[in-house]
Nucleic acid binder design. Structure first.
Lengths: 339, 339
DNA sequence: GATTAGCACTCGGAGTCGGTGAGTGCCACC
DNA sequence: GGTGGCACTCACCGACTCCGAGTGCTAATC
């Protein structure tokens, strides 16, 4: 009873099933893969694999289908992810580098990933929390309205309008702008509170209220988790032909529209692993995603990722290829943002 | 042969079919609508309506279904759009007004519309071309990199990084910023070229190249039609249960992901009419949308719309309700952006 | 002890076939 | 012009059969 061969059989089942979308039987298995034994032997192995919970049969007279547990084993131990070819890699790089701004980079990344994996791709915008501030700009709109523009080092821009109770003294703005930027530039968000607090004391008492309001807006804006944005592409891939996945589309689309769900998911996966991480079927708590797998990776930042990208599809997906694509796009995305 | 009654019959057919999603026969028609005549009479009318191309039968022994032409007549002449109730209107207003910035307004609008119509909603970002500039900001990032931030009167923000050949003389930036804003503030994009050109001449010759580059970037950014962005929501509504529309999902999703397609569509519809306009089934050239109808309206700007919103669903949709919702959201959106 | 050949068995899917009923078109009549 | 009546059509449904892929088991073989 060779354990190695059983794993070979599991690998073969996963590969075949991913390719054909049909339960795979013992005969086709020995035909398509050179396993060197007869169907009967395979059947014994399959019985053992089923006993162990790695595969299941939809109904008595059908072939076997991998279970979530089977996919998990496959992903963890049985698949080798082949790196992309040199031309592919080059194409990715060129495509991303020709983006004009952050929105464009993100947009291109998500489309690219959707196209590479033939699945739904999601890209999270670089987190404000973890980015450093490049510049703060104050623009008086009227004498009671102040526009605050926040620019981060990776090119993200946020703006807020501030309604003031009292008219704005003209002289304050330039000074406030200068001091704010001095206090803030280059620092990461988490490091902000103290220098800002220190700064307030340097203003005359009558301006303190205003200064505090501006600081408040900046902090609020940067702290708002709701501002985490996600873009996605490739939803049409969900509706691929010839698959019962069609029945599952609705809940998946609903989950995808709930950015909160996606964000939590990506965040959880960030804890799983530093590199590429995979969630398979029921490993996702969210009910609508129980027949869905997600492959995600962080990007940006050295060491600590600034945000994440992911690819989402039926559990029956090409894990090796998807993992390779996700990793590649994440890598080039990091490179482009750093450059 | 009363022409009026025939139209009543058509109206009844459309209403019933939209509600039940099943071909409607002469009997149920007289049962559900008080038409005051017998099924046989209705059958005669139906024969005439079919002859005229307003309805069709899927197969011989089935009831009738409206054709695109039938829907068109219904929309143009037979449906009265009931305004939303006061509480509904109030809810919309409150919901939109509590948005914190432009992104948030757009995001809320599109979700709201999707929820109101139970269909896919799309919202086009306010066009840069037609907006006026509120402020231009120049931020030196390094001595060879200049960040240009463009802020419009409706809150949209665009940024571009400018790579310079020569190091940036420190003194130029503040002056350039001041002059640019003086030349530009409050003007609409189409009116920009001359004042900018005029401005260049006021700089010393050695700075002219730099000034021209900055101006160039501004003009390019604003001119780029590709920068027109669209957001959408409610794609899950496409996968509603109990409808053959399920088969049509794929091409629709594909069309929706091609922002270009959507943009062209919305633009074309802008030509159709100033108010709410409707495209039904084959009236859309795009192949994937031949079983889809779109209801769109402009928003923002007085008189001339700054961008558009729309709702998209199967031709078999509740036109009266959708039109009412689209119009309402467009109106409140305009109000929020103006305020 | 592992592998294999052979064989009986199971059961989903595809194909066939009337029965049923909704709906129509037409005709004669009011 | 409107209506009742009637013959006709045809998609849908359930029952039934047939087929074959695939299995598990047992006994023979390496």
């Amino acid at each position: 009873m060779s354990d190695d061969r059983r794993l070979d059989v599991l690998r073969a089942i996963v590969q075949d099933y991913v390719q054909t979308h049909e339960p795979v039987g013992s005969r086709v298995l020995v035909e398509r893969h050179s396993l060197g034994v007869s169907p009967a032997t395979i059947r014994n192995d399959m019985a053992a694999l089923e006993e162990a919970g790695y595969i299941a049969q939809p109904h008595t007279s059908a072939g076997r289908v991998p279970t979530d547990k089977g996919y998990r084993l496959f992903v963890d131990r049985l698949s080798r992810i082949k790196p992309l070819s040199a031309p592919e890699a080059k194409a990715i790089q060129v495509f991303l580098e020709s983006a004009v701004d952050l929105d464009d980079v993100v947009d291109r990344s998500v489309r690219l990933l959707a196209q590479l994996t033939h699945q739904v791709a999601v890209v999270q915008y670089p987190s404000l929390r973890r980015s450093a501030l490049r510049h703060l700009e104050l623009v008086p709109v009227t004498d009671r309205r102040l526009l605050v523009v926040i620019i981060t080092d990776n090119g993200r821009v946020e703006q807020r309008v501030l309604d003031l109770d009292d008219p704005l003294p003209g002289h304050v703005v330039p000074e406030l702008r200068a001091r704010l930027n001095a206090a803030v530039a280059g620092r990461r968000l988490v490091d902000l509170p103290e220098p800002l607090e220190l700064m307030v004391t340097q203003f005359p008492a009558e301006d303190e209220a205003l200064v505090r309001r501006v600081i408040r807006v900046v902090e609020d804006t940067l702290a708002e988790a709701t501002e985490e944005r996600i873009v996605m592409a490739g939803t049409a891939n969900l509706a691929r032909s010839g698959t019962d996945f069609t029945q599952t589309i609705r809940p998946v689309l609903e989950a995808l529209e709930e950015q909160v769900v996606l964000l939590r998911l990506l965040t959880e996966m960030a804890d799983d692993s530093a590199g590429v991480s995979v969630r398979i079927g029921h490993e996702n708590q969210h009910a609508g995603l129980s027949e869905t797998s997600i492959v995600a990776a962080g990007y940006g930042g050295d060491g600590e990722a600034v945000a994440r990208i992911g690819s989402l599809g039926p559990t029956r997906m090409d894990y090796a290829g998807t993992i390779a694509s996700v990793r590649a796009v994440a890598r080039y995305l990091s490179r482009v943002l750093a450059g």
